[in-house]
Amino acid sequence: MSESSPETARRIASEARDRVRFEEEALALADQVYRVARHLAGSREEAEDLMQEAYARAFRSWRSYQSGTNLRAWLLRILTNLNIDHGRRQQRRPDTQPLEAGDYYLVDRLEEAGGPLSDEERVDQRLSQDNIVAALSAVPHDFRDAVVLVDIGDFTYADTAQILDVPIGTVMSRLHRGRRILKQELAQEVAAR
């Protein structure tokens, strides 16, 4: 039997404290992680499953988290990897997407349909919450991931690149195209109603 010196006991106690602190910090971020996870996943149920799997894995591998780095990004990296492992990448690939319209496409369509936007008019007078949610879920995953992480999760390009494990240039081009595809989808939503 190994001798349990006071030093060993102190080390064990200190590690337990670190682990508890890690778990508390990770749980405190759960709301923010969920906000992003909800739209990385295809549905609410999928998002909840992913959250549980990601947190279980995070708690198991807490030692590989480097204290002081971005814990929210670390958690989302785990979650994104799990999401990819679940085979959703079997969906249509980005290079099969048609070339998207320009950035003024949506506002041009809205003005055609309902007259020029006035200075006081708010976006929600022309687009409903349902329009937005449906359009976002229609954006192909690779592009949606970038839009969700940057525009909803407030991650920097660099953090997003790390989470998705792609170069920053790829994040920027997916974000750019993703926003345009979102607007195209919105224009279709509005035309269909």
Partner: peptide, 25 residues
Amino acid sequence: YVRYVVSEPMPLELKERLAALRLAL
């Protein structure tokens, strides 16, 4: 607007399930 309307609060029950995943001391 997009950021605002797509933000769903996490279900309380999920929060409890996540907390239950913590490793036992």
